[in-house]
Simulated scan of single mutants.
Amino acid sequence: MNETALYDARIELVDFVIEAFWDTPEEAFVERLVKGDVKLPGESVNDPIDEGFAMVEAWVEANAGRPVASVHEELRREYTELLVGPRPPVLPHETNYREDTEFIGEGLAEVEASYGAAGWSVPEDYPEEADFIAVELAFLRYLIDQQRHGHEEAFGFERVFLDEHLSVWVDDFVAEMRAEADEGLFLAAALVCQGIVEFEDELVAQMV
């Protein structure tokens, strides 16, 4: 795989997780999934990504031919019950999985400091806190795009962010998703996220 294709693949993987978790998945995203228009890896990447996309393929097959609006409404309800609540069984925020930080305190401040150091900030209109899974993946996407455009310092920012943030909590998040979520889009996206962190950790280790 050449460098351009590798960057494209990295961003496509991250975009998939962001679209699944940013909020209730948009109907246009659901339509692309159901119609098979979302590009899936053609070869094995690593165990979590492979398992996640095998689950996506099974979910797509199970929903083939159904009205997109119906599938979208089911996902909206599932997302709300699983991740929003009231009293959701899974809270996909970094500080929820860490015992060394407080949710309304140093934990959020540390995540925001990582963003600020790299020149990135959470979109002002986004309602979730800075340590929400989709926000952390959006920051990772920004760093990958910076690397694509020759900003080598972005590899260092990614190394720190993986070590101090994503790698610290993603395994616990996925374990909780396995316990609470049905096999389908959201568990699949969590597995892909875990695989992305594993893949990026190995890649960045070669660059820093």
Rank of each mutant, 00 (worst) to 15 (best):
N2W: 10
Y7I: 09
R10K: 02
I11N: 14
L13P: 00
I18E: 06
F21P: 03
D23R: 11
D23M: 13
T24I: 13
E26N: 08
A28K: 09
A28F: 09
F29C: 08
E31N: 02
L33G: 04
V34Y: 02
V34H: 09
G36A: 00
G36D: 05
D37L: 15
P41G: 02
G42A: 04
N46F: 01
N46H: 00
I49T: 05
D50C: 03
F53C: 00
V56F: 08
V60T: 08
V60P: 05
E61D: 11
E61W: 07
G65A: 02
G65D: 07
R66L: 14
R66H: 08
P67D: 02
P67C: 01
V68K: 07
V71I: 07
R76K: 13
R77K: 15
R77L: 15
E78Y: 06
T80Y: 02
E81M: 14
L82W: 04
G85H: 00
P86W: 11
P86K: 07
P88Q: 04
P92I: 06
H93S: 04
N96D: 15
N96K: 13
Y97S: 00
D100G: 00
T101L: 11
T101M: 14
E106N: 15
E106Y: 13
E106C: 10
A109K: 13
V111Y: 03
A113I: 05
S114V: 10
S114Y: 14
G116W: 12
G116D: 12
A117I: 11
A118C: 06
G119I: 00
W120I: 10
V122Y: 00
D125S: 15
Y126V: 11
A130D: 12
F132D: 07
I133G: 00
I133D: 01
V135R: 05
E136M: 09
F139Y: 12
L143D: 07
L143Q: 03
D145M: 10
G150V: 06
G150R: 07
E153I: 13
A154G: 07
E158Q: 15
V160H: 13
L162V: 02
L162K: 01
L162F: 03
E164I: 03
H165L: 02
V170K: 10
F173V: 08
R178Y: 11
A179W: 11
A179R: 15
E183Y: 09
E183W: 08
F186W: 04
L187P: 05
A189Y: 05
A190K: 01
C193I: 12
Q194V: 00
I196L: 08
V197M: 02
V197P: 09
D201R: 15
E202Y: 01
L203Q: 11
L203R: 12
V204S: 04
V208I: 13
V208N: 15
